[in-house]
Design a binder for these strands. Structure first.
Lengths: 144, 144
DNA sequence: ATATTTGCAAATAATTTGCAGTCGA
DNA sequence: TCGACTGCAAATTATTTGCAAATAT
């Protein structure tokens, strides 16, 4: 079901990124895992199959991908950036209880924002924090 | 024009914050400077008149204020949190060129977001990056 | 008198950088 | 071969923490 290696390679090439093995593998991981992983999560997942992988390379790779616009970087928490290969406009919700990050798809076709007409917008970030439905349900059951 | 010390003290007290001199002064600074300062900016501004002020105290104070809900913390950049004493819902725009942060007031009374109905939202963050009107204008003039 | 606040110095941790070795075309 | 990619180790930097001194009520 996942995009094959050749397709991934082409996406990289189209964005002026030489498709090295490490880069392809990192990109593939991000395409297959849309769970907004941190650098450390990606590292721990991939170092098993690429024992020589270093954090430095991972940082280099992710920074390059962000620069070239094929992934987005999220800063939902004070520390530890997260990465998202879904570059379409959508919001995020981080549950303060279970820490899970949800994708929230925007209903509005455009955000009606006063005062933004004369700005050239290159990035839009919308995120929320609170308690997710699952944790809310668990809490209610605990009370009853 | 600025709120007097007594008023600021009362706001602190109302939020269970003992109004020490440092705290009052930091809060006053944030109320009078709505330019989303970093910890370092606040420190450099205040250490002149409060020579004994330490970064530790500043961190303690700001964390306490955020916890008690009288200021918001923004994470528009990967590093360096910024602080905002305007706790009403509004968006931010960070200019990639001049680094200035603008307040963008929302036109919509509510954000129509599909799939958020069952979430309990405690924080909303909306921010944009791009080029601000002033930098756009300067760029155009430079081209002509 | 006693609890709270403050501040120095050290610890922590995410990310970047310098540089040398390695790999692929 | 040559330039790009990789990775170790060290540097950087925002923030937190331990603990002792200062302060206020």
């Amino acid at each position: 079901m996942s995009a094959n290696i050749k397709e991934l390679e082409n996406i990289l090439k189209m964005h002026d990124i030489k498709p090295s093995h490490h880069r392809i593998r990192v990109f593939q991981y991000l395409m297959e895992n849309k769970n907004h992983p941190t650098v450390d999560m990606i590292y721990r997942e991939l170092v098993g199959e690429i024992p020589t992988l270093s954090k430095t390379t991972l940082y280099n790779t992710l920074n390059l991908f962000v620069e070239r616009g094929i992934i987005n970087m999220l800063n939902l928490e004070e520390i530890e950036s997260r990465y998202d290969a879904d570059t379409s406009l959508h919001a995020h919700f981080k549950c303060s209880h279970c820490s899970k990050i949800y994708d929230i798809h925007l209903e509005v076709t455009r955000l009606e924002l006063a005062g933004l007409e004369n700005f050239e917008v290159s990035e839009s970030h919308i995120y929320f924090k609170g308690i997710c439905p699952i944790c809310l349900k668990n809490r209610d059951e605990h009370i009853n």
